[in-house]
């Protein structure tokens, strides 16, 4: 019974809401995955207040990268419908170009001239 459960969790998959890719629920490093490794979009299925399932079930768009003190990267998602923010660690096979694009996006559109920092 327990081996059957284990097999089921390993072979568990979900379709990506945005690109339709069939994604395994377990990441290569063993962790549970919540976003598509190709386009990094997620689904709003977890409620942060109650900790249980959320009834929103809308698409969550990746908006930025945060770095933990330990050096690990987190993807921050925002729900397209209710505006909820969540953060999740990246997996080893996440699309690195999209991760990089999100990381440099603030620097591509700075609210102040970055040339002033050259004098510091």
């Amino acid at each position: 019974m327990s081996t059957d459960d284990k097999t089921r969790t390993i072979t568990d998959t979900f379709p990506c809401v945005r690109c339709g890719l069939t994604v395994t629920a377990v990441a290569p490093d063993g962790g549970r995955r919540n976003h598509c490794p190709s386009c990094l979009h997620s689904l709003h299925v977890l409620d942060r207040v109650e900790g249980g399932p959320s009834e929103c079930r809308s698409r969550m768009i990746p908006i930025s990268i945060a770095v933990l003190r330990s050096g690990g990267w987190m993807v921050i998602h925002r729900c397209a419908r209710c505006g909820e923010l969540t953060s999740n660690p990246i997996a080893g096979d996440d699309n690195q170009l999209i991760l990089m694009r999100m990381a440099v996006r603030p620097l591509a559109q700075p609210p102040f001239p970055l040339e002033a920092f050259g004098d510091l």
């Binding site: 990268i65 945060a66 770095v67 050096g71 990267w73 990246i90 080893g92 690195q96 170009l97 991760l99 990089m100 990381a103 440099v104 620097l107």
Partner: peptide
């Protein structure tokens, strides 16, 4: 801060 970490995704570029 993400760019100062020379691990994973920087190598993609």
């Amino acid at each position: 801060r993400p760019l100062s970490d020379s691990r994973l995704p920087v190598s993609a570029l």
